[in-house]
């Protein structure tokens, strides 16, 4: 399968503080990678480097700069100012920024595509509503539309399962499986139990990155990766994620 992104012995951080060291990662077409790790372990920094919003201190990302594929991005929902005066349809259209020159106009084809996506996600009736009137799950759907409207080769989701009900969570993973047939997906989550049953491979991020080419991971392996997360998840009944969950 074709490589779409490669990180080579990458070091990243802010000013003097190094957060990530010696990161190697290859993302191929149709990959579905779950990123887990403790808070402050560098998950967000890794995403920022991949998204190109911060420059790596050392190492390289291939392909470089403008040759990099279009990346769809779903940020953490709590970073959004939901009082901002912008209607849903405009938020979805803003996903096409990378296709437009600064003076570029948005044509009827763009708007038709936005309508189509909003229909698929079941939010077309909210099209003209302001984002402040939406629930957490509806807002996540809007941001998912924005993330995929440009048909990216790679979709990155930063904790899409926070602030939403479990209903939406199920639907979200269904949508992601469908999208995965034509784009690679990287998902960051706190809910290790849930993502492990959906992704194809796992990366544990804590100061560095340990790649685990399977979605089955044990507590012992997590310890070996220096990734101290408990595999206990929060649910109706407290439970541990078992090694074999087929």
């Amino acid at each position: 399968m074709k490589k779409i992104l490669e990180l080579k012995s990458l070091t990243a951080g802010y000013d003097e503080k190094i957060v990530l060291k010696g990161v190697n990662l290859v993302v191929k077409e149709n990959d579905f990678l779950g990123i887990i790790g403790p808070n402050g372990g560098g998950k967000t920094t890794l995403l920022k480097v991949i998204l190109g919003t911060i420059k790596p201190v050392e190492g390289e990302i291939l392909p470089d700069g403008n040759d990099r594929c279009i990346i769809g991005y779903l940020p953490q929902i709590n970073q959004i100012d939901n009082k901002f005066p912008i209607p849903v349809k405009e938020v979805v259209l803003s996903g096409l920024m990378s296709h437009k020159k600064i003076f570029g106009r948005y044509n009827s084809e763009n708007k038709r595509r936005a309508d189509e996506l909003m229909t698929q996600m079941g939010i077309i009736h909210l099209k003209n509503k302001n984002i402040g009137e939406l629930s957490g799950g509806q807002l996540q759907r809007v941001f998912l539309c924005r993330a995929i409207i440009a048909d990216p080769k790679l979709l990155i989701l930063d904790e899409p399962d926070t602030y939403v009900d479990s209903n939406f969570e199920g639907e979200l993973y269904e949508i992601l499986h469908h999208l995965n047939s034509h784009m690679a997906i990287i998902i960051v989550s706190h809910d290790v139990g849930t993502i492990c049953s959906h992704v194809k491979s796992i990366a544990c991020v804590n100061e560095t990155l340990c790649y685990h080419d399977s979605n089955v991971i044990s507590q012992e392996q997590l310890m070996a990766y220096n990734c101290p997360i408990d595999l206990i998840t929060h649910g109706e009944v407290p439970h541990r994620v078992l090694k074999h969950h087929k």
Partner: peptide
């Protein structure tokens, strides 16, 4: 509205 997202684009 969302500077971070705009930067990724």
């Amino acid at each position: 509205f969302d500077e971070e997202f705009a930067r990724t684009q």
